[in-house]
Simulated assay, not measured.
Amino acid sequence: MARITLVTPVVNAALRQVRFDDAPPDATAARRAGAAAGALPRHDVIFTAPSERCRGTASALGLDAAVAPELRDLDVGRWRGRSLDDVGRQAPQEVADWLADPAAAPHGGESLLELVERVGAWLEAWSGRERRVLAVAEPAVVRAALVHALAIPARTFWRLDVAPLTATELSGRSGRWNLRCGRPLAASR
């Protein structure tokens, strides 16, 4: 049975500002991740998403992780670098469409359906393998994995709350996945 643990990265300035951007963790966040390293589950294979935030979190956790391009964050196209508030003021209907329709990609990037398909393909590649996989991945990737694994409607994507520095565990074989939700990675004692 495959065991996949998806660890969400620590908060950084871009996330606090709800900005479609990538930046490494700040020093405080990196220390918090380092303190939680002892709480990681056992693993055979380690991956990280290519973002600076995920790679920085993996490094702070003491992980020697291979970059998995399939775990990259949702591509928000021309919205990249902008805040959600800014985009919402300039293109309120586009934001409303994006939040309501999983097939919409008004930003010219990737739709939620495309994200779920990409992440689902990565997840299914591990199905049935007797491996313990640990991956540091953005919250959107974790949401997409949950939508796929549980075969829930993609419109529920935005209703899944994925907290920073938590572990979401999936176990399965033959396309059937079980879920253990968002366990906080507490500092080891």
Rank of each mutant, 00 (worst) to 15 (best):
P69W: 00
A33T: 08
L84W: 14
E52H: 14
A163G: 04
V95T: 03
R82M: 11
A30I: 05
E130G: 13
A13N: 04
A104M: 03
P164H: 01
L40A: 00
A140T: 11
A186H: 14
L123W: 06
I152M: 15
S188M: 11
L99T: 04
P25Q: 03
R72V: 09
R129W: 05
V133T: 09
M1G: 07
A104D: 02
S51Y: 09
V147L: 09
E124M: 00
D161N: 13
L15M: 14
A35E: 14
A140L: 13
G182W: 03
R72D: 14
V76F: 13
R82A: 06
D97Y: 02
W158P: 10
G77M: 07
A104Y: 03
A163W: 05
T48P: 15
A68V: 03
G172H: 14
D44S: 03
W79L: 04
L185E: 06
R183W: 09
P24R: 00
D75Q: 08
I152S: 08
A33Q: 08
A39E: 12
L115C: 01
P153Q: 08
I4H: 01
W158A: 07
R3S: 07
F47W: 15
E52F: 11
L112A: 06
S127F: 07
H43N: 01
A105M: 05
V162S: 01
E169M: 08
M1C: 01
S127K: 12
L15Q: 13
R3V: 12
G88T: 15
G38H: 07
E52P: 08
E110P: 01
R32Y: 03
V45M: 05
V10R: 11
Q90L: 11
P41C: 07
A91I: 02
G56Q: 10
S59W: 12
E110Q: 00
E110N: 00
E117M: 01
A125G: 15
V141P: 15
L99E: 06
V7T: 00
A49D: 15
A2N: 11
T28R: 15
P41K: 03
N12L: 02
R19A: 07
G77I: 09
V136D: 04
V18N: 14
E114S: 00
V119Y: 02
L123K: 08
W177D: 00
R89L: 05
N12Y: 03
A149V: 11
L160W: 11
D73G: 14
H107V: 00
L40I: 06
V87N: 07
E117L: 07
R16N: 04
W98S: 00
R183P: 06
A65R: 07
G175I: 09
L179E: 02
T156H: 15
R173C: 04
P50Y: 05
L179S: 08
R82Y: 04
L15H: 07
T48S: 15
S51I: 08
R72G: 14
